[in-house]
Every structure is written in C-alpha cells, then in structure tokens.
Nucleic acid binder design. Structure first.
Length: 256
DNA sequence: TAGGCCATCTGGTCCT
DNA sequence: AGGACCAGATGGCCTA
C-alpha cells in the first residue's frame, strides 16, 4: 500500500507522539501499535539484559560504569526517534517531488512509489533539459544574428546591446546563436514525448498525458535556466532495472 | 498466496 | 560525544 508520511500508516507524523506516549522510561509499555515494534522492543530489552556491561549499541556508548537498562533504553529510543524523523523528512521531500511531477494528482489516484517517483523525476529533468536545448535553438533562429540577451526569463533589450561586461548574451544562447538548423518542438523534443499516461501503478481512470499537477508551473514559472542559477543536467546514464523486477515495465514507461 | 512497497528498529560508519 | 546517514532485517498492508 502506498504508505508514507501522509498516509494512514503507522508511520504517520503522530508516531513520535505515540512513541513518546508509549515508551515509558521503565520500558513497561513499549508498544507503538505495531506487533513488530513490540517485538523489537522486547528483543532490545532481552539483548540489554543479556549484554551485561556491554551496551547493545557497541563500544560507542561506553558509558561510565553503570548504565542502567533504563538509560540505555532511553538512548535507544532517542536514536530511534531521530531515525524515524529522518525518514519522515525524507518522505516529505518525496511528497514534494511528487507534487511537482507532471502526473495526475488526486485522492483517487494511486500515489507513485518512491522508486517510480525518482525515475519519473529523472525523466522529467531530462525532458526539461531537452526542451531547454530546443528553446535555445529556436531563440537563436528568431534572433538570428542579433545578440540578444535573455536572462532570468526576461528579454532585456537594453542590456542586449549595452556595454555591460556581464550578461551581454545569456549563456544559454552561446551555442544557440551559432545554430541555424530549423526544427520544431514536436519533432525534435524527444523528451516531450516521454511523459506518458499514467502507468500501471495508476489505478484510476486514464488521464491525458502531460496532465500537470497542481504544483506544476509553466515556462514562466520554471526555475531560471541561466547557467548561473542552473545545475548542470545529469549525464544520460541508463538506469539499470536490476533488482527492480516488478518495476521493469514501469521503468519502461517512466524512462521512455 | 506471492510479491511489492513501506515503516520501523538496529548497528555500523562517518562527520562535526 | 553526538548526530546524520546507511543498509540489513523484520513484519504489516495491499494487490494481482
């Protein structure tokens, strides 16, 4: 089931509260509403009881002389809490990534898995990179020999021919100005065809391709494409699907 | 029921 | 020393 920080799973943000509520210092109650957690806690306690002076978390915690089981357990709980928070933050970031993905969003739409989200994000970035390259070509064609400036999403005609040593020509146009190959977006943007309809994981009614999510912003809202603000695009390194057996078909869809 | 996905715990390692 | 990060183990939930 799609479970993350926003789902009804036991990993909901309330977990920390439950965690604090249920884990008493004396270890009497360690249930986190999960059998497994109970088991883990029991195992921990057993381990602690057996370990004698040696702490269960290695020599790192060579505590003075007497470290009560209670203190060790407190430390263990503290570490667990941090790890849980870390994973929650990671899931929040994953949700944020899902929101800006050009995919159908909604309560009735099954959420992308983590691996699918990452693969789609990569594909999306590559598509945007291709779009940017094509945009450079088109701008180069439009402005031909004119050395226009195109910085931060605005065409600055004044600075285009100004004597300013900086940004006389947008870095993106450096290669575009020398390009004269006519082309169209539809034919030369392979990336644009890479955004497919919802794949097999999307269990709802089919949605049109390139359905933009709520968080999507069109060109004007895209991050500044200039080389100053931009992170270099990733190399086209094929992602192997090793170990992703079930995602094999999904990868094909996402990576196309 | 098997497989996929996930949350959590845990111990190790690295960094500050 | 303590926190962040990582990977392995484990078990729950869901779907085909």
């Amino acid at each position: 089931m799609d479970s993350d920080s926003s789902s009804s799973r036991a990993s909901s943000p309330d977990m920390d509260g439950m965690y604090l509520r249920n884990h008493l210092p004396d270890g009497r109650v360690n249930s986190v509403s999960s059998t497994q957690n109970e088991l883990n806690q029991k195992m921990t306690s057993e381990h602690l009881s057996r370990s004698g002076e040696k702490t269960p978390i290695g020599s790192k915690y060579k505590l003075k002389k007497q470290v009560t089981e209670e203190e060790i357990q407190q430390l263990r709980l503290k570490i667990n809490g941090r790890e849980r928070k870390r994973m929650h933050d990671l899931n929040l970031a994953m949700d944020g990534l899902r929101e800006v993905m050009p995919y159908a969003h909604g309560p009735s739409v099954r959420k992308l898995s983590k691996i699918a989200t990452l693969l789609l994000a990569r594909n999306y970035i590559l598509m945007l990179t291709s779009s940017l390259d094509e945009m450079k070509r088109l701008v180069g064609e439009i402005y031909g020999g004119h050395h226009s400036a195109f910085h931060c999403g605005t065409v600055n005609h004044t600075s285009a021919h100004s004597a300013s040593p900086t940004h006389q020509v947008h870095p993106l146009l450096g290669g575009a100005l020398s390009s004269s190959t006519p082309s169209t977006l539809s034919t030369t943007l392979p990336g644009l065809t890479s955004i497919r309809a919802p794949h097999s994981l999307m269990k709802t009614a089919p949605t049109p391709p390139l359905q933009i999510g709520s968080g999507f912003q069109h060109w004007a809202g895209l991050p500044c494409p200039c080389t100053i603000c931009q992170v270099p695009p990733p190399p086209h390194v094929p992602i192997t699907s090793t170990g992703l057996t079930r995602l094999s078909s999904e990868n094909k869809e996402v990576m196309k």
